[in-house]
Amino acid sequence: MTERADTHALHAALIEHRARLLRFLAARGAGDEAEDVLQDLWQKLAAAPERAVADPVPYLFRAAENHMRDIRRATLSRDRRQLDWHEAGDRPEDAPAGERTLIAREQLSSVEAALAKLGARVEHCFRRYRLDGVGQAEIARELGISLSSVEKDLTKAYRMLAELREKLYAE
């Protein structure tokens, strides 16, 4: 498939599902600016290099989700910079390089220990899912367990890691 055909297919899907996409973006944090955000998103997609898009609609929603994540990250780092202007930072990313490496190593071992505590299967599910990008159906097949078991394992891992993060940052 040519780049042009893909971009055309995406644009056609965007026109057809515009209302759904706008509703998603508004609920996902864009609020009244959903129209502008969709416009920015389209410009980003139209400028992207050639790619094969099997199913344009889920592709557009995925891109919208990722776009909102990018916006949030950019907002957070901007807020952080503004805060730093007033006060010297004491967060990990403000530390000198050597110290940063040390913090990263400590975080790595904390996350590894937390996952290990949940058992080999939960850890395997999390790593395959989150680091290798393998879907739940594939993981279920690999392990010979049900889809709902995989989802439960993943939820368990996410819960434990959220608790760990809260604990580490509270210290």
Partner: peptide, 24 residues
């Protein structure tokens, strides 16, 4: 919210309207 975050993380996730309704 964690369950939604887990589900959305799947490359095959396709319940965007469900997520929209939950967020709304």
């Amino acid at each position: 919210a964690r369950l939604w975050a887990v589900r959305v993380g799947d490359p095959a996730f396709d319940d965007w309207d469900g997520l929209t309704r939950w967020l709304e």
